[in-house]
Amino acid sequence: MLMMMGLRWRPQSRFPFLRNLVSLGKCLKKELGEGGGGNHKLLLIAVHAVLLESSFVAFDSVTKMKVEGFHLLDEWPTSEFSVTLWYTLPEIINQGVSEDGIETVFLKFRSLGKYVNVNGSLARNGCGVHRVCLDEDRLSFFLNIMWANCDSIKEKNGKGSFSHLHPEKEVFEFWRTIKDSLALPLLIDLCEKAGLPSPPCFMRLPIDLKLKILESLPGVDVAKVGCVCSELRYLSSNDDLWNQKFVEQFGNVEGLAGGSHSKEKFAKSWETRKRRRMAVPVRLGRLMGGPHIFAPRIIRDPDPLREPRIIGGDYDLGPAFPLGRSVRASPRRHVIPYCNLGIRRH
């Protein structure tokens, strides 16, 4: 698993959740600006944004109607509070109201000092309650920084004066918690209850597992996955992931100095290697470091009594002479169980 503590994301790959949150914030500007309880509002809106992103729509339990626009509450809470929000899915509304009414889920927010508990469950016969506890002060602090950054510097590299605090990491953790612990389980419960097909298969996975699967892909495929949708683009732009891919692919860390923009570095090395491969005659390739486009080639120690058999690439075309034998056929050669010719450099 990726170590979440050390996550670094490329600043220019905008976090889709933040984009949604900012546009939601703009629509709610008037409501946000009025009265006190700013932190409560921010937290409610942030959770609301994750639910909307997960294909829920807000639902008014009194009028039994979908909540149009961005109206959330008539009265915003100020100090200690307990608030309930209802949600359903557009597909359920389109099915029309059955005798039992519309299937919904609700989120119940309750403040406890600086913490806010959020419980989510099916509105009717909800057997499982999904629960998260949020640190309101901490979260609003970081959300505010990200919000301010997004608003003022737009597409610039996102480096605010608070960049040393990694607010994006904090907000990512928040998003992951809400998404994995509330939105996804509620979505699965609600689809099952309403007889809808369950959510698309890959998107049902928690973020950790999505990252784990990306880790199992070669770098070039991780890049393609980034073109699938904005969430996967965000997840596939992680610097640690690309550092790992760089080492897997090129077998060294020389091109990685600095540790950030690892994807660009990977792309650059990939292009360089491709050009080299096309431009340099194969025979000379070895002298220039040898192209090993895929994994470093691992060749088992050959039987000392036979000519070493070297398969593939430039070695196939090289001199028929046993390569490096004179160097390696020392009395102690049996202690070298593998000779990894793929990463030899000349």
Binding site: P200, C201, F202, M203, V228, C229, E231, L232
Partner: peptide, 10 residues
């Protein structure tokens, strides 16, 4: 990949 994973293009 979109088709296999059932992911919506946003």
């Amino acid at each position: 990949v979109r088709e296999i994973f059932g992911v919506e293009n946003d």
